[in-house]
Nucleic acid binder design. Structure first.
Lengths: 214, 214
DNA sequence: CAAAGAACAGAACAAGCGTTTAGTGTACTG
DNA sequence: CAGTACACTAAACGCTTGTTCTGTTCTTTG
């Protein structure tokens, strides 16, 4: 139902919501005016408040709409039989990977997630909490299966792995500058994932007092 | 001209700059009004623009002041003989660690750095670029010394390690919620660093097809 | 088909914004 | 000690903001 993509067929209400989502994601809630959203949706400013009550109401509607899309990505972690997927081989254990797969190109949703996480509003906090729980659960299963080493501070380790993943979305532009690839495109994501996997599998640093490896 | 600015500090001008730094860091540039800054500094709104020309001029002054403070932290990575420090044992190789050490408690500078990195303005991009270069250089030396494994994509690895570090500052509040400790306090930072060190030294995941370790 | 109500445009409004202006002290300076 | 320059306040200006108001067009429905 929500996967109709063309713009002219949508209702004005949906057009307003989509224009607001895109502008909020790119420039932040406060920097976007109701008039700009109306112009972007091809309607009058009065119609925006007619449909959503107020700018804050529009923001709440955009939040709800975005959360719906994020939950679909979230279900990839939370829904299936993780043990079977993990032992089967290829699996998505990265938030950024799932994002790049779900929102292929030019989608405003990664940028909107960024805004949600960085403005300390409840929507972002709830999203982070759910993702943390999923990461924690995934790690527990991996430990049980012998795919991950046990940790004496699993809360910190799960948070560490999660925020490392989210950093790709938060610092997307800066990362693109230093590595020369947008990390949310397939090419950039591939380079990124390869390196992350290497570090998580073998570590990055070697202890100083021992002898060097052959 | 910077020599006279030291004597002029602690005046109304410095008060305005400090109030703006704190408010900008906590709530963002756009959400703070000139009148609020003036009230926070105990002066009139007109005096703000008298000293800084405009709100944008004030922002530039705050940026310059913050960059000065960040450079002091930055010098910890860039200045000394890294090889000697690394082989000597205890060293700060973490941005977050250096931050927590340099700005001990209640300082607005970590939050301001957060704003700089997240709004895509040139000040934040320049800071990120310098930190990336320092991280890259540090890793190169560590590889030479046998303290880090060589990487076939050093740009990605350096970026990966850097953004993992910055994530502690960017997602400070969310991290504090899930682990129950503010990661920029000594207690929280200690838990965090211990886990990060473990992952970077030994990895976190073990390969599935091999036999389990003894 | 006529009545009703929703969808919409465009002008207008009050409030808040950054900034300007006019004016008052106050401290140097020759 | 007059004079200039600077720090500073209070009021006001012009503009933009979110929102409201009035009126018109479209769509439904009994």
């Amino acid at each position: 139902m929500s996967s109709t993509s063309d713009e002219r067929d949508l209702t004005a209400r949906a057009n307003i919501r989509n224009a607001a989502l895109r502008m909020f994601a790119e420039r932040g809630h406060d920097a976007v005016t109701v008039r700009e959203i109306a112009t972007g949706a091809g309607v009058s400013p009065g119609l925006v408040v007619h449909h959503f009550g107020s700018k804050d109401g529009l923001r709440a509607a955009v939040d709800a709409h975005a959360a719906e899309s994020f939950d679909a990505v979230f279900a990839e972690f939370d829904g299936a039989d993780l043990a079977q997927i993990l032992t089967g081989g290829e699996a998505t254990t990265s938030v950024a990977e799932a994002f790049a797969r779900a929102f292929p190109h030019g989608s405003p949703l990664p940028a909107y997630l960024r805004r949600l996480l960085l403005t300390n509003d409840p929507a972002g906090a709830a999203l982070f909490g759910r993702w943390y729980a999923a990461t924690r659960r995934l790690l527990d299963i991996m430990v049980e299966l012998g795919l991950a080493a046990p940790s004496d501070d699993p809360a910190v380790r799960a948070t560490f792995l999660l925020v490392n993943d989210l950093a790709v979305i938060l610092l997307r532009n800066q990362i693109a500058t230093t590595i020369g690839d947008d990390p949310l495109t397939p090419a950039g994501l591939d380079r990124w994932t390869r390196n992350v996997t290497a570090v998580y599998a073998q570590g990055a640093f070697t202890p100083p007092p021992k002898e060097p490896p052959p």
